[in-house]
């Protein structure tokens, strides 16, 4: 299947000599939700800007549905909608005007019915005649999404869409993104909020220092890199971990009431059975056990800190 976006050997070095991106290779599949994770300054926005035509690449190519984004920029850009990170809006325009403007800018004839539908989907229709300057930050974010959707894009970039929005809007947005995916729109999402990626993404890419360090199915990634923790709630607090249990790498909480055992789910043996046996031998009684799965955030932090 032809990728929705194929990035090959993409590099970006600024005049100052700063290399924002180095040899990026990345494929986005049609119809998927792809989450691009990375710390500040990792190169997420630079990568998006180059794909969308806002910035120029120093080397490499970007194909959108098989079209080169420089040579065939009309074909590629008309397929893409972008919700930028910053709340950049025309303060003195009305919601309706600015969304209609976006539709025209991307070469689409007027279609008031479609614009109305987009505004209704984003709960913006009752604000259609309001000047943007009068809207709250969350509503402005919705306007930016409406503008990006105004020309019926097949690929939608959401650059930090949840930055500065409340929980309600975030939930609404996730619902909207899922609906878009249902209609066949490919979605590329950059975010700091790991829970956002965890909630929505089909695949996850991690970028750090201008390099893609990992691309993986989210579920597979969590399975592969996920570590589990067994928390043992002790019957009576202890002061130190007995030497006999030293080989398990147990940690004791500050109150001495919980022992934590971290194990690899991929291992042939998890070591839980022998640990429980050794606890009994050491005469340490426990009242409860629970397991905790690594979150995507744990994985992300682990990956990035490992690189730095």
């Amino acid at each position: 299947m032809q990728p929705a976006i194929a990035v090959t050997g993409l590099s970006k070095t600024y005049a100052s000599g700063f290399a924002a991106l180095s040899q990026i290779d990345l494929e986005i599949r049609p119809g998927e939700i792809f989450a691009l994770l990375g710390p500040n300054g990792a190169g997420k926005t630079t990568l998006i800007n180059i794909i969308c035509g806002i910035a120029t690449a120093s080397a490499g190519t970007v194909l959108v549905d098989g079209h080169d984004n420089v040579a065939a920029y009309r074909e590629t850009r008309s397929r893409i909608g972008l919700v930028p990170q910053e709340l950049t809006t025309d303060s003195f325009e009305t919601v309706w005007t600015t969304v209609s403007f976006s539709r025209g800018l991307f070469g689409k004839p007027k279609n008031p019915a479609y614009v109305e539908q987009v505004l209704r989907d984003l709960s913006l229709f009752d604000k259609k005649d309001a000047k943007i300057i009068t809207l709250s930050g969350g509503m402005k974010r919705r306007v930016l999404i409406a503008k990006a959707l105004a020309h019926e894009p097949r690929i939608l970039f959401l650059d930090e869409p949840s930055a500065g929005v409340d929980v309600e809007l975030r939930r609404d947005m996730w619902g909207l993104v899922r609906n878009l995916r249902e209609s066949g729109v490919t979605i590329v999402l950059t975010t700091h909020y790991i829970e956002e990626a965890e909630e929505m993404a089909d695949r996850v890419g991690v970028i750090s220092g201008g390099r893609i360090i990992l691309v993986e199915d989210k579920a597979a990634l969590m399975q592969k890199l996920g570590r589990k923790r067994l928390v043992i709630e002790l019957h009576s607090p202890i002061e130190t971990v007995p030497d006999a249990l030293g080989s398990y790498g147990l940690t004791l909480d500050a109150a001495g009431a919980e022992l934590v055992y971290t194990y690899d789910t991929r291992g042939e043996r998890t070591g839980i059975t022998s640990l429980l046996a050794d606890l009994k031998s050491a005469d340490i009684r426990f009242r409860d056990l629970r397991t905790e799965q690594s979150s995507l955030e744990d994985i992300f932090v682990g990956l990035v800190s490992h690189r730095t």
């Binding site: 590629t76 850009r77 930028p84 303060s91 991307f106």
Partner: peptide, 17 residues
Amino acid sequence: FPRFTGTIYEVLSAPIS
């Protein structure tokens, strides 16, 4: 003005010559 406010991103990313 669009350069100043940042809204120029939309023109630059549009299929426009």
